[in-house]
Amino acid sequence: MKNEMEIIFDALSDNEGFARVAVAAFITHLNPTVEEMADIKTAVSEAVTNSIIHGYGNLRGYGRPGEKGEECDEANPGKVRLRCVLDKNILHIEVIDQGKGIEDVEKAMEPLYTTRPELERSGMGFAFMEAFMDDLEVESAPGQGTKVRMIKKIGVGGWIEHQC
């Protein structure tokens, strides 16, 4: 059985929670383990956050609402596309943006590497996606936007736990 969904939303940090909850709801009927669910939500959160703050440079909602708000209110009007395909128990996720793209994908994927240290994020975004999902592919070029593809098999967590 194949099942597909796609949502397109504004590149605002307000939507990070929405995106991961939408994916979580989409896969609930497969009865994923608590770990699998958390892994997927974290990976989606990382990818969507990257699109918003790096792809489009939108920092609205970050920091104290209202204080730095004025300048941050001018958000780039970009959209993030989140596409999920469920093929039996294999979940394919695509997070696509039309943002500024990544110059050196390999470098960007190095743990702790970040282009915006002032935001005090950890530089662990891609490392987390890689660790929490079974497969990760990043397609990007400057000015061309970024496409992140992730795959995870659902329903194996219980088996692995049992083996350990």
Binding site: S45, Y62, G63, R64, L119
Partner: peptide, 13 residues
């Protein structure tokens, strides 16, 4: 309850 980028800046501040 949820710690993501959206709320992180405010917590740091």
């Amino acid at each position: 309850e949820e710690i993501d980028h959206h709320g992180a800046g405010f917590i740091c501040e």
